[in-house]
Design a protein around this nucleic acid. Structure first.
Lengths: 162, 162
DNA sequence: GCGTTGAGTGTTATGATATTACATATGGAG
DNA sequence: CTCCATATGTAATATCATAACACTCAACGC
């Protein structure tokens, strides 16, 4: 299982690996991995949680890397369209991808208590959704799958008997 | 298949049926189906498409049923929390449920060209998402499933050879 | 070299979506 | 009738996102 988000893990390692993967991908595809874009990705990787665009912007501003919303949104657009970062529609927030460079359809488990987000894989063309699409002649290009609920930690604290 | 949205259908009939079902549900559960709430649902049913809150509010205002955002948002909150209307996160918009009263997890097929939306069923606890949740101890309470793509009509117009 | 071009960035302003807070009304329970 | 819960009216504001335009700079053709 490659779900990441609710367990402890080698954080520095996963950050370094993700940055390296993104760098390689950009070099290979002749994409400009500029300082602002890199910094936004670093912020998201190091926080390892879903962050709003303005929250990211605050950090950029503190570092003198741009102070207006378009700076953050442009960097996020780049990162999202290349699959390095995902947008969580439900939270209007962004989170670094846990396996950048690979082509995939992310699915998210979002804790309503602590806002922790875990990334899993979805297979939208399979299952009932794919069948419904096929039946009606709809062509799926991209899918958003977000489950709200309680993460293991928060479930414990709600049922303290455990 | 109970997907609705890309085919012609008895529009007046589906509107009457939905209103009746909602009325029955409200009576049974002692919920207040007030004029504003009813009108918002009627607007969504009659347009039969995803609408923004402010777009709905414009109509309410024209009819003297309230002019400030909270009026629309409160009615929408009521309708959404009782499953009569769904929110399309991807569009920040709302759409009337095609089978109100029944307990269900909706999934949507959204055309990126014409913004038509079809509602299907999802089964979030099954498939990879359910497995990922079970593996990590996450409890799914509610899920958002939204597929973007091209509806049959728009696919035709993109490939005019058909 | 030098102009042209295109991508990225800086900045201002504004648009679009959503909520807080508080005042007012209304209808049923005791 | 009074109290209370629920719903509504309204003003103000918070939050999220984009349009439009000026500027920089590196790559390229000539």
């Amino acid at each position: 299982m490659d779900t990441i988000g609710f367990e402890a893990h080698d954080h520095k390692g996963c950050m370094r690996a993700a940055l390296a993967a993104v760098e390689a991908h950009c070099t290979r595809h002749k994409l400009q991995f500029t300082p602002v874009r890199r910094r936004v990705l670093e912020i998201l990787l190091s926080e390892h949680r879903a962050m709003g665009a303005y929250e990211i912007l605050d950090t950029l501003r503190d570092e003198g890397l741009g102070s207006q919303p378009p700076v953050a949104y442009r960097a996020l657009d780049f990162l999202v369209s290349n699959g390095f970062v995902h947008k969580i529609e439900r939270l209007n927030a962004f989170i670094a991808c846990t396996h950048p460079g690979q082509d995939h359809t992310p699915a998210f488990l979002i804790c309503r208590q602590c806002d922790a987000v875990a990334e899993a894989h979805a297979e939208p063309s399979k299952g009932m959704l794919g069948r419904a699409a096929a039946d009606t002649g709809f062509t799926i290009e991209q899918a958003v799958v977000e489950a709200m609920g309680l993460c293991p930690q928060c479930r414990e604290s709600v049922h303290p008997c455990a």
